[in-house]
Simulated assay, not measured.
Amino acid sequence: AAVAGLPPILSLTFDTQAAMAEDPAMSAIREFSLSLDVPQIAREDQPFERLREAARLLAEHMDGVVTDGNGQILGEDVLDQIATDLQQLYDALAARELSAGTPQARRLFS
């Protein structure tokens, strides 16, 4: 997070056993997840844009692809639609006086 003490913008999850394996053939991380806890992160921090860029760079450097939880490749058009949906979610939270990243939203959704 940009401010010390606030939650992280993104979470990275992977199989730690694979990462710590002594056998080089077993040490490759073949998949990992990036996640975004929307109510915890203010819209102004541009969390989805940052997640999207991190995913793009990781895929590029690891010769991989960005997929959803079911392994379906997420193209730019799908990511654009997710960004639009996310903006609507931010608007809905704000309309209920629970703007993402505020102490009230963080308490309610934690």
Rank of each mutant, 00 (worst) to 15 (best):
A4H: 04
L98H: 06
A2Q: 11
A2P: 03
M62H: 10
P47H: 12
L93W: 07
F14K: 12
G64P: 05
S99P: 05
A28E: 07
E60P: 03
A94R: 01
E60K: 11
I82M: 06
T16S: 02
I29Y: 09
D91H: 03
H61D: 13
R96D: 15
E76Q: 14
L108A: 03
V65D: 10
A94D: 13
A21Q: 07
G75K: 10
A95I: 09
A21W: 11
P24H: 03
L98F: 03
Q40T: 05
L34Y: 03
R107M: 11
R43I: 00
L10P: 06
T16W: 01
F32R: 05
S35I: 06
I73N: 10
A83L: 13
E53K: 14
D23M: 06
L74M: 13
M26S: 07
E22Q: 12
V38S: 01
F14S: 13
I82F: 02
Q72P: 02
L12H: 05
A25W: 01
E22R: 14
S33Q: 08
G101P: 11
R106P: 00
L86Q: 05
R56N: 11
L36D: 08
L86I: 04
G5Y: 08
G69A: 08
L36Q: 07
Q46A: 15
E22L: 14
P103I: 06
L79W: 05
S35D: 13
D23A: 11
L57H: 08
T84M: 03
A54H: 08
M26N: 10
I73H: 09
A1V: 09
L86N: 07
L51A: 10
L89H: 05
R52P: 06
E97W: 02
D77V: 05
A2S: 11
T67P: 02
N70G: 12
A59K: 13
I41T: 14
G69I: 13
E97Q: 13
Q81P: 01
R43P: 00
V78K: 10
L36A: 14
L93N: 05
T67R: 01
R30F: 02
F109M: 07
L79H: 04
A54Q: 10
R50G: 06
D77G: 06
A100D: 02
F109G: 11
A54W: 06
L10Q: 10
S110M: 09
V66C: 11
V3W: 08
Q46T: 08
G5N: 14
L6K: 15
L108I: 03
Q87M: 04
E22D: 13
Q81T: 05
L98R: 03
A4Y: 01
G5V: 10
V78G: 04
L12Y: 06
Q40L: 14
M62E: 13
Q88R: 10
F14V: 04
N70E: 14
R107P: 02
A54L: 15
P8M: 09
A42L: 11
G75R: 15
A95D: 15
L86V: 09
E76Y: 03
A18W: 00
A83V: 05
E22Y: 07
A94T: 12
